[in-house]
Design a protein around this nucleic acid. Structure first.
Lengths: 359, 359
DNA sequence: CGGCTTTACGAAATCGGTTTCGTTAACCTA
DNA sequence: TAGGTTAACGAAACCGATTTCGTAAAGCCG
């Protein structure tokens, strides 16, 4: 028979034959069905046998082949992550930490991470569909939640478990969903409180695209912070839709050109806050004295500018780890709605904020 | 129009039962063995049958379940990537593009990417071993090759296919290996030529850790560039082991403090080159006039500094795509040693280099 | 036209597990 | 002590594919 297909395996076999469940069974003098049930903690196996099987399995270095298991169980112990290549900031420098967190945690539980990418929402749906159809993953981690996230409905319709990095629904998180989020609202509130404590009375806010849930929450935090500090809310001091450094710079220019300019700006992200440094240089202002800046994210770049950026840092690695953990719990049967987690961002004081100079 | 009720009364039909090969066989009036061979292009199937099977398979939306295939074939159509979390620069901003390239290309061929991470070499070996033992991947992509890369021997001993991002062995690439690399040597040579063309006679080099292969190659390129330009090689102008911005800055200070300082510095990486900007600011020098800088990588940050950094940019997305393609080819039977690819870095002129000022 | 290849397909084994269904012997009951 | 449970395991079906092997019909040859 002529083969036009892929070539077969290599000729030399120094590869130590892997131990299968039947080998284990033979060594134990049991059948593979008994061994399988023992390993999977079935109740009709005596404790002594169970223990003996576990011990010999460890001795022989037996590890079940997930794919063979999957044929029967339909579960492959793999988490899925779809990177959105069209995201405004390309995930910045967080991706390494985030992926590290997911994979390290997943690895502890014997799971792996399968990733795919998309350039658009359509492509994302195709990709997810393919991964599911091929049974390559059991559930998904969704980064970058939007206020109304199309992925949520899409996956719910397919009855696929998933966890969100970030809540949805703005004020009212959608019930029944699993999510992990960092309290950006609280961070922005604390930022305003800190500036107000320094004596600032005109504090501006430069936010991100309002389609993202975090953007709205951080804006909320800013407004709440003003209220708690007893400061008036001035719409002119709040700008949104700022997504990169140059837009952050332009926002600073616009704010400083106001008749009654702010003495401090709270930025929604570090990347945009760096734009304020450019403007300060243009205009000969000293950051931390003539203009105070506080932002959010904790990118490494923020520690290298002069003065270092005061920011509320997010632990991406922890986020990844917890998301993996939540998803695995859900895949093991935990009710999704009970798997939610909100953590605080950590203030990293730099030199970019301080008391305002008296005019 | 008949209304199809979609109440929650009947949750028993969430997913439209997937099409199995036996369903296909039944619909075709053939056995599944015939269908399987038809789909896999066996030569003992008549062309008409083969065509008919393919057509009906498409109509019915049949897609084989990779895991079920894997039980028999041992191949799961998954590429593996182990991120090294202890890498000096954490992959910087390239990771998104790189992963995007891999996954997009792999997706076209019906493959997926499984990633894991490690904090040390030992952990890396454990992780790889686990992925292989569990048959979760068919081969690996190894980023960041070192001159003598322990991963190469490790994987070769296990007879696992892999491709390298970067060559090994410095001058003499190890034969029989698959790799993709960007010609850093040529880029550095071109950088020196460009500077010499501007009239620079004292051109320094700030390189990376010599344990990495790319570091040695780029240094070679620098030296070759000098020779081609007819400039003498001065050991005092060549510093190595520079790995971040602050070290890049210190290198610039040391070089500028020499009795006979350079008028231009070629940096091995953009991240370190940015340190020169800090030093220029400290000393009131103008980059591009008082001191010319050329580097390598093409990080976005380089385009935002003033003046923009002249650099040789690497297309990480293309790298990922090609690596995926090479690995898949190898897994399909192509001889590893013939799968090598060297591409040129692309010059992105900024304002950081120009003619030297006459003393 | 009888014997020998091919051609093209079916039947069954196989991969490495999981799960259902018996089955045996010991253990309770009444 | 007979009859019914229960505990603990074996036998076999099963998951969804691939692959080996067998075989009927058609084609070839002298």
């Amino acid at each position: 028979m002529e083969e036009i297909r892929d070539t077969n395996k290599k000729p030399s076999e120094p590869v130590p034959r892997r131990v299968r469940i039947s080998d284990l069974a033979q060594a134990l003098g049991l059948t593979k069905s008994t061994v399988s049930r023992a390993l999977n903690n079935y109740s009709d196996i005596s404790p002594e046998t169970r223990e003996r099987v576990a011990r010999v399995a460890a001795e022989m270095g037996y590890a079940p082949m997930p794919y063979a298991q999957a044929v029967r169980t339909g579960r492959v112990r793999a988490l899925g992550l779809v990177l959105e290549l069209d995201a405004p900031d390309r995930y910045g420098p967080f991706l390494t930490d985030f992926l590290g967190g997911i994979t390290q945690e997943a690895s502890l539980e014997g799971w792996t991470l399968t990733i795919a990418s998309s350039n658009s929402r359509e492509e994302m749906e195709d990709t997810v569909t393919r991964l599911l159809q091929e049974h390559k993953v059991d559930g998904f981690i969704l980064p970058r939640t939007q206020v109304v996230d199309p992925r949520v409905k899409f996956l719910q319709a397919k009855h696929v478990p998933f966890v969100l990095f970030g809540r949805t629904g703005h004020g009212q998180p959608d019930p029944g969903l699993s999510w992990y989020d960092v309290d950006g609202e609280g961070a922005m509130r604390a930022a305003v409180a800190r500036l107000a404590g320094f004596g600032h009375r005109r504090i501006a806010f430069a936010g991100s695209h309002a389609s993202y849930n975090f953007a709205l929450l951080r804006r909320d935090g800013y407004r709440e912070g003003l209220e708690e500090a007893g400061l008036p809310f001035d719409p002119a001091l709040e700008v949104m839709e700022i997504s990169d450094r140059s837009e952050g710079a332009q926002a600073a220019r616009d704010l400083l050109d106001l008749p009654n300019p702010p003495t401090a700006i709270v930025y929604s992200t570090d990347a945009t806050a760096l734009g304020a440094y450019d403007v300060a240089r243009e205009r000969g202002l000293t950051i931390g004295r003539d203009l105070s800046i506080i932002s959010y994210d904790g990118i490494p770049e923020g520690r290298m500018v002069d003065p270092p950026l005061t920011t509320f840092a997010v632990d991406s690695q922890h986020a990844g780890a917890r998301l993996a953990s939540l998803l695995i719990a859900q895949l093991r049967g935990a009710p999704p709605g009970e798997l939610t987690e909100l953590v605080a961002a950590q203030l990293e004081p730099g030199g970019s904020d301080g008391p305002p100079v008296d005019p």
